[in-house]
Simulated scan of single mutants.
Amino acid sequence: MLKELHLSVSLVLVFACGLLYKLTLRSHCFFACLPPFSSLGRLEDLLSNGRSIVFIETSERVEPPPLVSCAVESAAKIYPEQPVIFFMKGLSNTTQLASNTSSPAFSLLSAIENVFFAPLNMKRLFEDTPLFSWYTKINSSAEKYWLHVSSDASRLAIIWKYGGIYMDTDVISIRPIPEKNFLAAQGSRYSSNGVFGFLPHHPFLWGCMENFVERYNSRIWGNQGPNLMTRMLRLWCRLEDFQELGDLKCLNISFLHPQRFYPIPYPEWRRYYQVWDTEPSFNASYALHLWNFMNKEGRTPVSGSNTLAENLYQKHCPKTYRVLIQRAEETASREPGTGNR
């Protein structure tokens, strides 16, 4: 009896230690919290189901600002059974932050079970794709829009290789996208590349990568991005105008109505940072693109402002709102020189 009791206590202690170890990793580590990417085995496992939600950062920035954090958190919230993988060029296989570092966005995102960070190694990514020869010859320092062009290329290669859904880091998810192979219309007969999804090895994306290289011209804004998607879609389909809120279907690709992701068009992007008399329901939308490239003024939600953006943060990325908006404002108000001592 005593022997059985000792065995039971030992098992409980082992379980408790294991649980404590996991919690410690989640709350105090940076890259140690992440899959062991030294062999890329775990990353391949996560991507292999073809259902990942993918975000990309092609700058060296490693601390996500509030809108990026909101995009990742909202996707994890809407797709709880799917891995949300954030590829960042600023990371490497050996990148670590000290355990006592102040990284609120990473802390809150790392605590979400289905969020994972991964280094973006473009040379390795482009292997076995039409993009490899282009990448090995290009002089990135001479490219005016390199951050954007390299992101355009990376998203094509990742989704072609592994499948899943790509989203820009200024897209807030509000409900699941039901389609497997889709492009998002930004306007009538014009595709965006800010959100798209495909099954692995879809020939449309292979054609996009070939066209990317054949018609490469980085001096034209969007030539490798939305213009590329639109060119290829026109080769595949005979595009028509949208009728009411109906989506279009071409072969096995769905061309989703502009209301699905762009209910507020880019010339009106400031409306996200305004107070609305009647807040829109966005019942026809799967996600909302906040046009951060247009936001040269650096607008961000302010606690208590009742703007549309603040309300979206509160509803769809509450952790980001509490930590990066409310708590950041409270901390700033207590700092010397702010008038609140």
Rank of each mutant, 00 (worst) to 15 (best):
A332T: 13
F31Q: 10
S305W: 04
A328T: 12
S74C: 05
W236F: 14
N223V: 05
P336Y: 05
A157I: 04
N306K: 02
F198M: 09
L290D: 09
P226K: 00
F204M: 05
I78F: 04
S191F: 14
I264K: 03
C317G: 04
R61A: 10
V323W: 03
P318G: 07
S140V: 07
R238E: 15
V54L: 13
C208F: 13
Y145M: 07
N139T: 06
L91W: 05
K22T: 12
P318Y: 03
F116I: 09
R334F: 10
I53V: 15
G207Q: 13
P318M: 03
S39L: 01
S303K: 04
L147T: 07
P267G: 12
L290Y: 06
P35D: 11
S52N: 07
I325W: 09
S8T: 13
E329D: 15
E143T: 05
R189S: 14
C70K: 00
K296L: 13
S305T: 12
V323C: 06
F106L: 15
P265W: 03
L34Y: 00
R155V: 10
R26T: 15
N283I: 07
K123M: 08
L91T: 07
I138F: 02
F293K: 06
P176V: 03
F106R: 12
I112H: 01
E44R: 10
V14Y: 08
L290R: 03
F182R: 01
V275A: 08
E73R: 00
S99E: 14
N100H: 08
F204C: 06
T169L: 10
I112D: 08
R175G: 13
R231S: 13
A32E: 09
S74W: 03
L147S: 08
S281E: 13
R219P: 02
L67V: 12
A184C: 11
S218K: 01
V68L: 05
Y273E: 14
E179C: 04
C17Y: 12
M209G: 07
N227D: 07
G164Y: 09
S8D: 13
G246A: 15
I112R: 01
I158A: 02
L2G: 03
K319H: 09
I264S: 05
E81Q: 11
S69M: 03
K123I: 11
V323S: 04
N306D: 15
P265M: 02
H202D: 07
E63N: 06
E73T: 04
N93Q: 04
L108W: 00
S110G: 14
N227Y: 09
P301K: 03
M122D: 05
S303I: 07
D45S: 08
P301L: 09
Y321P: 04
A105K: 03
T230M: 01
E244L: 10
L40W: 02
E297L: 13
N211F: 01
